[in-house]
Amino acid sequence: MKIKEEIKDGIKVIRLSGKVISGPDLMDLKTVFQTSINNDMGNVLLDLGHVAWMDSSGLGVLVSGHTSLAREGGRMAILNATKKINELFIITKLITIFETFTSEDEALASLKE
């Protein structure tokens, strides 16, 4: 898994690619969420457009990021989840708690509200 971070329109954007599955990389992703909170960047856009696969451990980190941000009054939006990842969100019903977008501009506008 590769993680790229940038700030766009004042919003933290995290772009993931590859496989979001069990392994040391997941600790890095946890740290990225925690750093966002520590730096008062409570609204996060998570771009999954290049994520090929995700397992329950990867989902667990997303859920934990979502709840940690929400606890601090922030929000996490998900951008461009692929068909496979979207199916995963549907079977686990996490689609009901995640905010998902297919347009980066719309996602950023929503997070700035």
């Binding site: 397992d55 329950s56 989902l59 667990g60 859920v63 709840t67 995963l88 079977i91 686990t92 019903k93 996490l94 009901t96 708690i97």
Partner: peptide
């Protein structure tokens, strides 16, 4: 079944569901 409410957030059973 993934459960509802708090159970949805809990990781119990998510791996087997997948």
């Amino acid at each position: 079944e993934p459960g509802e409410g708090e159970a949805l957030i809990s990781r119990r059973g998510r791996g087997v569901l997948i």
